[in-house]
Design a protein around this nucleic acid. Structure first.
Lengths: 339, 339
DNA sequence: GCCCATAGTGTTAACGCTCACATCGGGTGT
DNA sequence: ACACCCGATGTGAGCGTTAACACTATGGGC
């Protein structure tokens, strides 16, 4: 994809601006980089020349000599999902605020190979740092194989790898959700879990068990989901058949949506008969039937913290940081006091 | 964010590889660019040297001399929403397949200024082409102000601007949805529209009117939404109060979700008393109560076509293309034959 | 009246790569 | 045996920028 059309006058470079302004190219460079030591009147002449020629600095030349690309890379898994999409957005905003461009490499399967490929693609572009959103053990492990010397931060990758990371405290969030249900008078809480091999699934399950144990409540067997509404629906059909089930904590909102439908079909009313809590707070949550109580994560903050960690990493301040953000419970209408 | 740590041995460049392999830097370059005319044995020696030194070609230097950055830019509005997120994903995949890197510039408000800023940010990175996802008139108009000479394609931007674009045939999709409802025996179809100033909202409304007119059905006044579930809910409360309403076409799935809840609260059963159709086919659609009949768009195809258009644009084949993809109706359980 | 600091500007040399061209052997045709 | 071609490699220049340093006025301190 070369410049449109073939023989247009090649675009202006620094020397052209210099000639037009009657100065040396170095003075142009100084104006461009906000050096002091340029007479205001000269600066104005240069700026005018730039405007006239529609001058656009050549980023490649600049990068070549400064050795700084001002670009960050993001590796992300299926950026269509709400979680990853929100994180990408948060990171992009934070990166821009910090003066970086953002380059993206998305992968459609979470494997060691795909992750490493994506990282290499980013390295070819000489990014100055990489944020990897690869929320699965097998993929997160791949991060350990990334050569040192390139700043790398994992997001939502659990403690599987030694890579610095920022994430949400899933265990705490899940425990809060479960405690909320327990405090409502339920004797125990059932759980529809995420798939094995996903740190977030494991941590949420752990938080659920923890809260159950600390309340001395019996621990029912968790049902396995795969994050999809379908899996939530299927698990829900089984749960709906069991009249002793009065409270369910779902590892994410999509599964909660499926559960809600299964309960509805089985004629079990929410929240009168069964209380439901999700995790993520997707935009649809407040409009489910009934509006879903769920655990909310601050994705904007995740983005900002990733940036911060990346910078600290580069300056060598904190070699192996781990940042954990505490999510908050959004109580809506899918949970109600039993008494 | 400089390379981590300060005094590490600067990374290997082409000359280092050449020296180690006992050839000239030019031969290394030839190996790198898959030129023929390199003896297999020499090539092997060079590759081995690269491996040994962990050589990474300097993209800035290459870009400087070839004048090709191999990078495409995407301007997108709130990439958290399902539509934009899916398009970004589709475009990224297609771009990668075509050998391009992808740089992202997201904006949080759709205005002339924000769009132009984002495009400039991308220009600074000397991208070879830009795909703009700015589905609002005021933002799309800004695209006309972009200097020629840079390949630009709009996605989902309607016919507001003269910029080449690819999009979904919203009018056709809406007409299909409305006809489906009419064919079910409904005397007319109500409409919850998207906000004014959005091409997609306008086109979907037009398709709805068109189908109504062609069937000779009366045209009820459309209700105004803003794409959010909340607005769908509010419009839904009004619709639910009117017993004559038996069929509703929503301009997107999120509003349909809100509508579904409003109908449910008012005790109006879907699909027995009221049929509902949405637009987008978000992943949650099959698990709403009841599973939502909706219009599905092929975002992967949108991505591929954008790429294709960008390439044609650069080679000058087709100065002002417009590509329209036909969406398909997904019939589920929220619509049912009246008779 | 001289010196030296300093503001303002110019000159030159990289940065790491690709392109165009030069070179150097050994076949091949006549 | 000579010219010629072609495969395989090397040499030198140049892409557009910034960094380092050099230079020229101007002005204040003594």
């Amino acid at each position: 994809m070369a410049r449109a059309r073939s023989s247009q006058p090649r675009s202006a470079v620094m020397t052209d601006v210099a000639r037009l302004a009657g100065v040396s190219h170095q003075t142009v460079s100084r104006v461009l980089n906000d050096h002091t030591k340029v007479r205001p009147e000269t600066r104005e002449r240069v700026l005018e020349a730039m405007r006239q020629l529609d001058y656009q600095p050549n980023s490649a030349a600049r990068t070549l000599v400064t050795k700084r690309s001002n670009t960050l890379g993001i590796v992300t898994f299926d950026s269509t999902l709400f979680g990853p999409a929100s994180m990408v957005y948060g990171i992009e905003q934070a990166a821009r605020a910090a003066g970086y461009f953002v380059s993206i490499a998305s992968i459609n399967a979470l494997g060691r190979r795909t992750v490493l490929d994506a990282i290499n693609r980013l390295r070819e572009q000489s990014v100055e740092g990489i944020v990897a959103i690869v929320p699965k053990d097998s993929a997160a492990e791949a991060l350990d194989a990334v050569p040192a010397g390139i700043s790398l931060v994992g997001v939502g990758i659990g403690h599987t790898s030694g890579v610095p990371m920022v994430g949400v405290d899933n265990t705490a969030g899940a425990a809060t959700a479960t405690r909320h249900l327990l405090a409502l008078g339920h004797t125990t809480v059932h759980h529809i879990a995420g798939p094995a091999g996903w740190p977030e699934a494991r941590e949420r399950r752990a938080g659920w068990r923890e809260a159950l144990a600390e309340a001395g409540a019996p621990e029912p067997e968790a049902l396995d989901g795969d994050w999809s509404s379908r899996s939530g629906y299927e698990a829900g059909r089984r749960l709906a058949a069991d009249r002793s089930v009065t409270a369910v904590f779902c590892a994410n909102d999509h599964m909660a949506l499926g559960l809600l439908r299964a309960l509805h079909e089985a004629g079990r009313r929410v929240p009168e008969e069964v209380s439901v809590v999700g995790f993520d707070d997707i935009p649809e949550a407040p409009f489910m039937i009934p509006p879903l109580t769920t655990v909310q994560q601050d994705f904007g903050e995740v983005g900002r913290r990733s940036m911060q960690l990346l910078v600290e990493l580069a300056t060598g301040d904190r070699p192996h940081g781990q940042i954990l953000l505490t999510p908050t419970l959004q109580v809506r209408d899918s949970t109600r006091d039993l008494r």
